[in-house]
Design a protein around this nucleic acid. Structure first.
Lengths: 185, 185
DNA sequence: ACCTGAACACCGTTCAAGT
DNA sequence: ACCTGAACACCGTTCAAGT
């Protein structure tokens, strides 16, 4: 839980960092990621200067609230890399990624936009996860389960571009199912 | 070309309306749809009041710059409805829709978001096109070419949610191809 | 070293005052 | 009937002044 343990922080600074992150998690869950920085600061009980001292811009805050879920996905990819069914491994992981990317309303679109760029904090936070997912993709490609024309950035960009909430009637298809079907050779 | 001919406008008002629309087309093409209303007004040589008199909010401007392309897609769907290859008709039309939705950077995401709601100006502008596309979808569903679990809103939302520009290396797959593949039974 | 809140820049939208 | 531009509300971000 002690995120950002690499840089030593004064106890009050660490407490503020944690408070901002907790407030962001809660507000994002309640209202989506478009809540204002001002609201996040107020909910955390800190001024804007403090907020921006710890998170240089809103993108860094998005990265910060994602880092634990990205780490879990990274570990999950590492596990799945030993699977003997490379398509099952990849598609199962992509379902998890899809769920995780949509954890907060609006977040998935930011992930999708960020994945291509090198200058994005979210993209940087994705890298270890992406490297492990790349292995899953390459396994599936070697097994001929998915086209070799697609790279891992394309696949993740595609999946995270799916709309936040398209709820249809009872028993209907999820859009992720359509995409996975399209990916499967 | 004389859009909005239903409501009679004074000649100067019509000229301003046209100027705003032309400026929006040009600025959207150059810089994407996130250019400010102020910039659109300035480029058109009108004040903000005039801008908002003709387009009650930015969403209406998005609808206005889309209306001709939506009409073309509506007509195209009507033509294709007589095709005897229902999948070829649907997939060809969806490719056109994909291209059209991405005509201006950022527009596709707005179309995707709007398609579900009833209160959206973009959604209202889509309706006739959507009704004709629904026929194509139902033909393909009757022929067993695509799952009956998907409704036309789901399909259009999915296609327009694709990222604006994911350019991969040479000769690689386009994301629309993946989606169409996933849709085809 | 860290914090605060006033201040700045920008943008969508409104409206009082004009012709 | 239509136009203009000042004004308002909101938001991301910065920074001078404090402890």
């Amino acid at each position: 839980m002690d995120v950002k343990a690499d840089r030593e922080l004064r106890v009050d600074a660490q407490r503020n960092y944690d408070a901002v992150l907790a407030a962001a998690h809660q507000l994002f869950a309640e209202k989506g990621i478009d809540v204002s920085m001002e609201d996040v600061g107020r909910a955390a009980g800190v001024g804007k200067g403090t907020l921006y001292r710890h998170f240089p811009d809103k993108d860094h805050l998005y990265a910060a609230v994602s880092v634990e879920r990205f780490a879990a996905l990274r570990d999950r990819a590492t596990e799945l890399a030993t699977s003997d069914d490379s398509w099952a491994a990849l598609s199962s992981w992509l379902r998890d990624f899809d769920r995780s990317a949509h954890h907060y309303r609006g977040l998935s679109a930011r992930v999708s936009e960020g994945l291509g760029r090198t200058d994005s904090a979210v993209a940087r936070a994705c890298e270890p996860m992406k490297a492990r997912a790349k292995v899953l993709l390459e396994h599936a490609q070697s097994a001929g389960e998915i086209s070799s024309d697609l790279d891992i950035t394309a696949v993740l960009t595609l999946v995270s571009s799916l709309p936040d909430s398209y709820r249809q009637g009872e028993g209907s298809s999820e859009l992720i199912d359509v995409v996975l079907r399209g990916l499967h050779a």
